[in-house]
Write a protein that binds this DNA or RNA. Structure first.
Length: 458
RNA sequence: GGUGGCGUAGCCGAGUGGCUCAGGCAAGGGUCUGCAAAACCCUGGACGUGGGUUCAAUUCCCACCGCCACCUCCA
């Protein structure tokens, strides 16, 4: 049984599914008005790993992750560039997926976009008005009446009074609202902004309503797991929940939230401008180093994810690739259907405990060391079992080993140079052999002489 | 001010009331190698501070110090 830390409960609990054997997951994706940064990469990877692991355990996973494509910053950017909101959103959504593909993040089963679900949002707002949880301010829009929903604050563990006390200290309050904590469900149209018809006049949906409507529309009532970055707990997820449950719909059974990426001790964010682009980080250190670095930290913890962390992870990935190289060179055969039961048990125990990827990866590295020892001792059968287990478990986390991040280059030239060096070595002409090795080094090629021949890698 | 969380060896980072203090990176010493590379072996060093509970605390409790997040858009 998988145990998860449920934000609503504030503690760990069993992941009990709506329907035994299957898991439905909704994860909040980005608002696409800028290129993705390292933090977006981490979050996408965290949930990709959770999804992969649940699938690996035999569950039938339905994974939905949305894209917010209508929002103030998108509108502002489109206006600034003299282009359409759709063009801006499409451009940055494409940039987002392009990087996730490099990271080997599996495509979600569904990627709902806000503009595709305006009708269900309008229906939900209408239900809230009927239920007495929402009200119209002429010329302004429709607002959720927080005071009418007693459960408000449960998810983010806030008292309504505390919210009222701090309201207005940081953001100006619209005096027409019944309460300063009420939030917009529908915003009346403004000149130059995209808008849709609604029973309350033309306008556009508030931010929070899209996720309530889209998750219910695609996954249905009482879906299993709702996730996102922990900066979304309040107000976004609190509001999503109020909207769905206020309208009488059973919402997410469990909530999970992942930690933020920090840089120099501060949260990385687009608005602070202190971010590193995801593409830049992947270019510099490779997609697998990025994934491993994320795996080495528990998903709920804040983490630094800069050059030092990525370099360290890249070295570790190199060691994993080296294991595959030397296993193959030694003639080790691994059968994917045969796994080391103890290693698998350690891995599962770690992952079942709130997706403890850090401990799970540690179990794998333990097996890596043992596999190398077995190769050194020429115990090829034992080595094969361990190498196969390592590859299988890492693949379950989305990490492929034994394959280079980039395969370009002229292998024929390299092979010829290695053969040339081999000839020099046989005739004890080590000066020539070393000269060839240096030449290869300038091409970024590292050589390894083994009893069964010379191996090379980039 | 309110809420939640964190402070572990050079760095990153799991974890546990007592057993040889995960794992990764880095460092030093070996083995192997023509030399390297890779790998393996060995080594050192930790649990913010002060109290308390306990036979025993890094782990539980209290206080204090420091840091972070959310309370506004945000992954």
């Amino acid at each position: 049984m998988v145990r998860i830390h449920d934000t609503l409960l504030g503690r760990e609990t069993d992941l009990v599914q709506r329907i035994a054997g299957s898991v439905s997951i909704y994860v909040c994706g980005p608002t696409v008005y800028e290129v993705p940064h390292v933090g977006h990469g981490r979050t996408a990877l965290v949930y990709d790993v959770i999804r992969r692991y649940l699938t690996w355990t035999g569950l039938d996973v339905m994974y939905v992750s949305n894209v917010t494509n209508v929002e103030d910053k998108i509108i502002a950017r489109a206006a600034r560039e003299g282009t359409s909101e759709a063009e801006v959103a499409d451009r940055y959504e494409a940039a987002y997926w392009a990087e996730l593909i490099r990271l080997n993040v599996d495509e979600p089963d569904a990627v709902p976009r806000a503009t595709q679900f305006v009708e269900p949002m309008i229906d939900l707002i209408a239900e809230l008005i009927t239920a007495g949880h929402a009200y119209v301010i002429e010329g302004e829009g429709v607002y959720f009446a927080v005071g009418t929903f007693p459960a408000y604050g449960e998810l983010s563990h806030r008292r309504l009074q505390d919210l009222l006390d701090s309201a207005g200290t940081r953001v100006e309050v619209d005096e027409q609202k019944r309460s300063p904590v009420d939030f917009a469900l529908w915003k009346a149209a403004k000149p130059g902004e995209p808008d849709w018809d609604s029973p309350w006049g033309r306008g556009r949906p508030g931010w929070h309503i899209e996720c309530s409507a889209m998750s219910l529309a695609i996954l249905g009532e009482g879906f299993d797991l709702h996730g996102g970055g922990d900066d979304l707990v309040f107000p976004h997820h609190e509001n999503e929940r109020a909207q769905a449950e206020g309208a009488g719909h059973a919402f997410a059974r469990h909530w999970i939230h992942s930690g933020m990426v920090m840089t120099g001790g501060e949260k990385m964010s687009k608005s602070l401008g202190n971010y590193t682009t995801l593409g830049g980080a992947i270019d510099a250190h490779g997609p697998r180093a990025f994934r491993l670095a994320v795996l080495q930290v528990h998903y709920r913890s804040q983490m630094e994810l800069g050059d030092a962390e990525l370099r360290s992870a890249a070295e570790a990935v190199g060691r994993l690739d080296a294991l595959v190289r030397r296993a193959e060179a030694a003639g080790v055969v691994s059968d994917a259907s045969l796994l080391d039961v103890e290693v698998v048990a350690s891995f599962r125990a770690a992952m079942d405990n709130d997706f403890g990827t850090s401990a799970a990866v540690a179990a794998v590295f333990d097996a890596v060391r043992r596999a190398n020892t077995e190769i050194d001792a020429d115990n090829l059968a034992n080595a094969g079992l361990l190498v196969g287990t390592v590859r299988h478990l890492l693949a379950a986390l989305g990490l492929e080993i034994g394959v280079a991040d980039d395969q370009d280059g002229d292998d024929d030239v390299i092979e010829r140079l290695i053969a040339e060096r081999e000839g020099a070595r046989v005739s004890k002409d080590f000066a020539t052999a070393d000269r060839v090795r240096d030449e290869l080094a300038t091409l970024g090629i590292t050589l390894e002489d083994t009893p069964s021949g010379t191996l090379w890698h980039r």
